[in-house]
Amino acid sequence: MNIFRFFGDLSHLASIFILIHKITTTRSCRGISFKTQALYVTVFVTRYLDLFTSYVSLYNTVMKIFFIASSCYILYLMRVRYRPTNDPSIDTFRLEYLVGPCVVLALIFNYGYNPTELLWSFSIFLESVAILPQLFMLQRTGEAETITTHYLAALGAYRALYIPNWIYRYFSEGYVDPISVTAGLVQTGLYLDFFYVYFTKVLQGQKFELPA
């Protein structure tokens, strides 16, 4: 554990709390992609199957349980409690374009041909693109509530912080995980456009609006 990873994880936790806060206080999941949230549940469930097989630390176990539970809770909020506020007609990204290639990539790049390793690898690739339906929706509507942009910023910061974490681990432990690093760089790259608008508009007190 190093500070980059720790603050990355904290940022990830923060993003989830911000999202739950947004949905429950506005009593609406408007502007949130159900598809992205469903992908996160898939990511956490397929990756954290090792909860039953390998113990890393109490921190690790608690975080894994939290990520699975909170992502399922968010789906519940969107699908049951605030269902009328969820508009599927603008959440139109085709999931098969994401899941299909991730299955193929996991079959090619993995650390072992067994179900746990294949699912782990799949979850890493899937996480790297899981935000796309959300970003696509943002692009389509051209604007976002400020709280939603804070959610995305916290999620992007979590990914960004994992990069110095890997650099640090390389020098301090000689540890390199090529699958995580490659997928992580792609994932962080997807946020660059968003961050540009976030820094130049939202943090200057303006509304998040994309140029027409």
Partner: peptide, 10 residues
């Protein structure tokens, strides 16, 4: 290999 020690990152 990363998986020998398990995947310790979240």
């Amino acid at each position: 290999r990363p998986s020998d020690s398990g995947h310790d990152e979240l």
